[in-house]
Each structure stands twice: as C-alpha cells, then as structure tokens.
Amino acid sequence: MANGSLLDEQAPPLPREITTQPRFSDRVFRLVITAGGFTSLLVLGLIAAFLAYRGLEVFRTFGYHFITNYKWDGGNPDAGVKPSLGIGAMLIGTIVISLVALAIALPVSVGASLFLTYYVPNFLRKPLTILVDLMAAIPSVVYGLWGFFVLMPHAVYWAKLLHKYLGWIPVFDVPLPIFERSPFIAGLVLAVMIIPIITAISREVFTQVPLDRVQAAYALGATRWSMIRAVVLPFGSSGIAGGAMLGLGRAMGETVAVYLVLNLAYKANFHILFSSGGSIASMIVNKFGEASPFELKGLMAAGLVLFAITLLVNYLANLIVRRTARTGR
C-alpha cells in the first residue's frame, strides 16, 4: 500500500498500447470518407495556391497598397502610364452591401423560421417551408434581373423615404439625390438571396429546442412570445449566429446579381442609399473581359483576398457558435 516504502518501490507499468481491429466494412468506409475529406481540402488548397501563384506579381508590385488603394487603373504601356491597381473601394463596398443584406435578412429569417416553427397552421407548414427552400434554387442572374427591373423602382421609393426621415443619420445621407443602383438596393437583392439559408438553419435549431424547457415555460403561464424569448432564442442564438455568418459569406461572394444591380464606382462610399458602390466579386466579372495580362493577375489577387475574407468570416462564425454554445444553453 504505502508508496513511501523503499522496498516496495517499483517502476509503474508502461501504459498498454490499446488497439482495435476494425472490421473490413469499417475500413472501407473510413477510406471513403477520408478520401472525401481530403479531396475537399485539396481542392480548396489548390484554388488558393492557383490564385496566389497568379497574383503573386501584383502583390509584389503593390504590397499592401493593393488593399488600401481605391483606384484601379490598368495603365497604358504605349503612353508610358504605369498600372495602379487597388481594391480598397471594392473591399469596403463588399463589406457594406453584405452588412446591409445581413441587417435585412437576419430579422426576416428569424421571424420566418419562428413563424414556420411555432405559428403557422399545420397544413401550411410544409408547403411554406418548401417554398422558402426553393428560393435558394433560383439562379442568381434571375435575382439580378428581378432586382434591376422589378425591385428597383420600389426600392428607390423606399430609399427616398429612408433618406427623408432618417437622413440625419450619416449612412442614410446622400451627397447627390441619385438613388438608383445603390448599395442599399444591391443589399436588398442579396438579402432575398440569403434569407433561405438563414431561415433553414434557424428552423433546424428551433426544432431542437428541448421540449421540457418549452413546457416549463408554458406551465408558468408564458405566452407563446414570452416562451420564445425565454427559451427558444437563448437556446438558438448560437445556431442563428452561425446561420447569419454563412449568409454573410454567401453575400460577400455573390457576383452576377450584384453586378447587374450595383453601380460600381472606385470610391469608398458609406452612404448606402447613394448610387455608388463596390463589390470585389462583381468587379472581377466587370473587368475580366477586357483585362490586360497584368490586370488579369490583379483580378486573381483580388479573388485571393475575397477568398481569405470569406474563410475569415467562416472562422469567426465558428468562434461565435462555440462561444455562445458554451454560455447560451
């Protein structure tokens, strides 16, 4: 018993090596999913490597100015004008329209998923859910055209109202009364596009709320809304945050719809109602056709920056999800 006794002292045994002999089917399955996992990593890595390789020269030429410079000038070798490439305005524009989209889509999506989970009559639940999911299947060019031809006239009217009543807030101010093709309208279109994904994720989370907590709230005389606030939202907050981040990532990468709606301008514009904005993805589409070889490398570099930001957003999403998961439940 006593460890103190010198005579008894013995070296502790080495830990045993614990092995299991997986079944053949297990090994096959593991091989398949490992291959799948590594393939996606490999593809991701190859894309990043390709973009980095093609964009290297541009990064080397401009350094961090590539990100801080607002101007995109392909230069003119014949006239001896050197190119000056920067995506600052586009970067800011991307963030602005994505945040506008998120600000609109998040409350709508959470409301929609609460409605679909707790309020909708039973016979309508399934069809409405399918309808929302179908919204994700519409091609983005259709959203872009719809945004331009159908939404724009209404959105301009809403923008004018916002400007009239909330114009004293800097973001709702405009330097000139031009409201068409603004970040606000692009954000609206993007919002419609990311609503399905945020709704689907929130709905999934809401269906997992522990029933005993729901019943505890009702048994205390809760109304449906007070139950939702006390039980459902605290439980679902991490999932909603994760869904929001996924939506944000989608909004940042969206190309064609924004390209059709937004008035691209190489200026930093924080007046969301004003007809001038930026988006890295749609700038790439915009420039791709007539780009010089050097500009093309710049576009690749821009793609790499967008790629990095999207990864960062997803990483943050994970972080938020994990933090709220610890405290929120």
Partner: peptide, 14 residues
C-alpha cells in the same frame, strides 16, 4: 395551476 415536472427543468440560460 402550476406544475413541477418529473425531470428538473430549470432554464439554463438564466
């Protein structure tokens, strides 16, 4: 008419 359940179910977020 209050109720106490078989399984304790406090609100963990509070």
């Amino acid at each position: 008419i209050g109720m106490v359940f078989q399984k304790p179910n406090p609100f963990p977020s509070m």
